[in-house]
Amino acid sequence: MAGAIASGWASFAAMLLAGLVLMFGLPHVFDLFGLLQMTVFVAMAVLALSQGFIWGYGGIMSFGQSAFFGLGGYTYAVAVMNLGDSTGAVALAIALPAAFAALLGYFMFYGRISDAYVGVVTLTVTVILFNVFNSTAGDWYTIGNAPLGGFNGMPSVPPLNIPGHPDEPLDPGQLWYAAMGSLILVYVLLRGVLASRFGRVVVAIRENETRAMLLGYDPRLYKLLTFTLGGGIAGLAGCLFTNWGSFISPTAFSLAQSAQIIIFVLVGGLGTLLGPILGAVAIQYMVTLIGAQQKVDGNLIVGVVLIGFVLLVPQGVVPVVRNVLQRLFVRTPRGGTAPVASEARP
């Protein structure tokens, strides 16, 4: 186990270093336009991490992670317009989606509905939220001094500011650091959670719920906490997304958005944390490239990529690459160390 822990720390340190290098290096490589694009990719990577965590480790199949994403975006917009300072708005953009996830999760997990119905319920909730926010046009739907704006959404959302100084907003270049810093923080948080006793039990429940129960663990509680944490992280992603475009609209709740998150995770690799991040950036980059041409429909290409991955690389990129690297460079002695649970395969 000592070897596994050591390699766990090594991979963690390498990932952290890579993240910091990108955070401080990319502003020197990209112009402002490129950096802004990377910022939205990173916001999507945070969203993908929330899905990758609850699905890949918690075994909870949510078709509605975009519900918490959209709620986070709207919460930030409404709060910052009312409060002026963005600090409390960010906290609310994490807390409110997390609380909503807790409420929804309570009924799903303590109601003991089967896994398939968790998918159905989360999908339905997303559709409901999409329709609700779509029909909020008009003066009546104004929270404080923030009109929700119906299908047009909420434009001109004030950006993040230096905590406690509403008169010092971040410029787009500085927003990059906030977004990338958030991604690194979420990654570190999830690595910590997965390495903890709690995280081990979460993975164990994914592996065999009956056994976990017979050992004295209450799977309902562990799933609820996992789902709640995922909701909070998706909310943070929504907050970053709103900041990126100074704009949030009901399309954040759309089914296409929900599907895209699942594709991020599938392409990158289920049961890893790096996979969803890379999947999100790669797919978003591809969508942007496709958007620049007009010969082929973009959704068609994304669909073909998904089908290709499901058929040819069902594990996703990261697990496959890792297995190849391990076979090439690491000679595992018989009965020797194996990967730790925090990076175990699905």
Binding site: R197, E207, A212, G216, A344, R345
Partner: peptide, 23 residues
Amino acid sequence: PNVFDGLTVRENVFVAAARLHQA
């Protein structure tokens, strides 16, 4: 047998012991 197939032998037994004890 109800076991955690995707975990190692050691991790299986660890999870069992971790209900009552610190890591």
